[in-house]
Design a protein around this nucleic acid. Structure first.
Lengths: 227, 227
DNA sequence: GTCTATAGACGGATAGAC
DNA sequence: GTCTATCCGTCTATAGAC
C-alpha cells in the first residue's frame, strides 16, 4: 500500500524550491545564504546538498521548474495558431501576444511562482554571473528560435539584422518591465493598484511593442545594410 | 613648491574607483571582494575604508562619479534645445535622442567609464538590493522629472498614466539594451563588430522608441482611464 | 596615507549518527 | 531522508605601527 499520494503536498524538495524562489528575488543569489533559505523552508541546512547537490544546482532547478513548461507552452501556442491559420504567416501582434502573454499570465498565477518568479526572471537575464546568464540563455534558446522564425515569416521584407535588434529591444522591454518594481513610481505617481493588472499591462505593452517592431526603418546615415 | 600637479594622474582613490567599476560589472557587487578589488587597483586592502568608509559607500561613489555629470548634461541639453526653440515644445524624437544619446555616447567615451560603466548601470536598475535601487533612483530623479515634463509638453493629448508607462517602457528598453551583452547573439548571429557602434545603435533605438511612444492607444477593454 | 595583522562573523559543504 | 557538529575558507572592517 503506497500511501504517498496522501502525503502533504509540500515535500521538502518543493519547500526548498519555493523558499529559494522567494529569497532569490528578495535578496539575490549571493545574498541568500543556505542557512536563511533552509530556515525559511523549514528544512535542515544539509537538505539542500542532499536534494540538489549544491547551491548552483539549486539555482538551476528553480529556473527549470518554471521556465521549461512556460517556453514549451509558448511554442505550442505558436504551433496551434499557425495550424489554425492554415500555414499562413501570423500577424505580428499575435506573435507578440503569444510571447508577452505567457509571462504576464504567470504574474497572476500564484500556483506557478506568480509575480515573484517573474520578477526574479526579469532581473536574471542581466545577472552579473556569466554562468547564470548562459543558463537562462540555454533555457530560452528553443523558444527564441521558434519566435524568431515566426517573425521572419510575418515580416519577410524587414532586413534580418534590423529584425534581430527589434526582437532584442522587445525582449528587453518585457524583461525590464517584469523586473522593475520601483521605477514606475519613480517616474510618477502611478496608481499602485494598476501596477500588476496583467490584462491592462498586456494591452499597454503590446501596443508599445507592436509599434516599435513595425517602426519605419531609420534613415541610413552610416547604416551599412538596411537596404 | 607644491609639485602635486606633476604626480601621476592615477591617485589611489581614482585607481580604486576604476577597479571597482570594472569588477562590479564583471562579477557584481557581492562577488567582488575588497581583496580582489584592492589587488587590481594596486592599493592596500585598508585603503578602501580609508578613502570611502565602507564598501557600500564605495559603490555609491562609483555611480556618482559618472551619473551626476551625465544627468546634469541631459538636463542642460534639454534646456538648451528648448531655449533654441523659443519655448515651443520639443519634438518627441528630440527628447528621446537627448536621453538615449547621453548613454550611448558614453559607450565610446572610454575616459569616462565607457561601455563598462554603461553595462554596469543598465544592470543595476534592477539590482536585488533595495538600497542599491533606491540610490540609483535618487541619482536619476531630477533628470527623470525634467524629461517627464518635456514629454508632457510634447504630447499634451496623451493620457498621463499611459505616458508614464510608455516612459517606463522606453527607459526599460534602453536599460536592458545597455546591460545585455549575450542576448543579441542568442537571438541570432549578429555581426559582432556592429554590436557597439553607438551611432548605428542610436538610430535603431530611437526609431524603435519613437514608434512605441507614439503608438496608437490600445483599445480600452477594461481600461479605466485611457479616455 | 599606507601598511600588517587580526578580530569577528558568516559562507558552503560534508561526515557520520540516527 | 534528516539531523548535529564541524571543517575550513572568505568576508568586511579596524587597530595600531610606520
Amino acid at each position: 500500500m503506497n500511501l504517498r499520494a496522501i502525503k502533504p503536498p509540500h515535500e521538502t524538495r518543493t519547500r526548498i524550491l519555493d523558499a529559494a524562489e522567494e529569497l532569490f528575488m528578495q535578496h539575490g543569489f549571493e545574498s541568500t545564504s543556505m542557512r536563511l533559505l533552509t530556515a525559511k523552508a523549514d528544512a535542515n541546512l544539509a537538505a539542500v546538498n542532499y536534494h540538489f547537490g549544491s547551491k548552483d544546482a539549486l539555482i538551476e532547478a528553480v529556473f527549470r521548474r518554471r521556465l521549461d513548461p512556460m517556453n514549451a507552452g509558448r511554442i505550442a501556442e505558436l504551433d496551434r495558431q499557425e495550424k489554425d491559420a492554415g500555414g499562413r504567416a501570423l500577424a505580428p501582434e499575435a506573435i507578440i501576444r503569444a510571447f508577452v502573454g505567457a509571462s504576464l499570465r504567470m504574474i497572476e498565477d500564484s500556483k506557478n511562482g506568480g509575480r515573484n518568479f517573474i520578477r526574479l526572471l526579469g532581473r536574471t537575464y542581466t545577472d552579473p554571473q556569466k554562468h547564470i546568464r548562459s543558463l537562462i540563455g540555454q533555457l530560452y534558446a528553443p523558444a527564441m528560435e521558434r519566435f524568431k522564425s515566426a517573425f521572419e515569416r510575418a515580416l519577410p521584407q524587414m532586413p534580418r539584422d534590423e529584425l534581430v535588434w527589434r526582437i532584442h529591444f522587445m525582449f528587453g522591454t518585457l524583461a525590464y518591465t517584469l523586473a522593475a518594481t520601483d521605477t514606475v513610481q519613480l517616474i510618477a505617481g502611478c496608481k499602485p493598484e494598476d501596477r500588476y493588472d496583467a490584462r491592462l499591462l498586456e494591452a499597454r505593452l503590446t501596443a508599445f511593442l507592436q509599434a516599435g517592431l513595425l517602426a519605419p526603418l531609420h534613415d541610413a546615415g552610416d547604416v551599412k545594410k538596411a537596404a
